[in-house]
Amino acid sequence: MSSKTLASGAAAPSVERQHRQVRKMPTKQLLGLAGILGFLLTWELIPRLGLVDPNYLPPASEVIAALIVDFGLTAFWVAVGETMKAWFLGLLMAVAAAVVLGFIIGSSNFLRKATNSTIEFLRPIPSVALIPLAVLMFGVKIESSLLLIVYAAFWQVLIQVLYGVADVDMVANNTARTYGLGRMARIRYVVFPTTLPYLMTGVRLAAAVALVLAITAELVIGSPGLGREIALAQSGGAISGMYALVLATGLIGVLINMLMRFIEKKTLSWHTSVRSEVFV
């Protein structure tokens, strides 16, 4: 009798929760859409009402129109291509270097202690402080962008890999040892999977930072890409065009983030499930 009441009492909220979840999904998306529309409307109105000089902030409609025009221009896509090339190469080099070094440093107590203070000293140096060095070494070529991108992205990944390697479970590691897994096998089957979630977080953060540094390098140094186009549009007085390019960089940022989350979800199905189970 009492168990029956208990069961029905327990069942009711879960059913209710399910209903709420079903209704929540579209509401959330609608809210997001409304937010964007509201933002664009505000942007449209501010220059139109004369709150800000339209010469400095053209209305949203003009900027979007300019962006659509850009979409039809080869020069625009070439610039996007240059930026993405620097972003991708820089990220790749940073991740490769950070993973190799992270695994080497992380698996030795001695190296970890020996490098700790150096890492803590080098890591906070802002990448933009290296701009003069980049110009000296490479001029306005893509290598300048790469230097800045690699430096900034490298630390993001290295720190995460170091955390990941340190997180290896002693019991899991001992189990692998008793079953005869050698050092390399343990790195492959135990250390690497443990580190993967950390690595993915590091790569996602590094991907965002790499884009920022790619645009910065192009803007300041003048290496080819969207950043340089922004500077050129500004000096040429094409204000709407400049905003259109800024908008384009924002869109690229969103796309990169979506891509990274997608990859993370695919590779870490086991991990997100573990996590969600813990948090429920």
Binding site: D169, V171, A172, N174, T175, T178, Y179, Y189, V190, P193, L196, W270, H271, V274
Partner: peptide, 16 residues
């Protein structure tokens, strides 16, 4: 030799 550890939860690999 094989060992079965007390902490079975930690001795199985959750990614496999």
């Amino acid at each position: 030799m094989a060992v079965v550890f007390q902490e079975y939860g930690r001795s199985l690999f959750p990614w496999m």
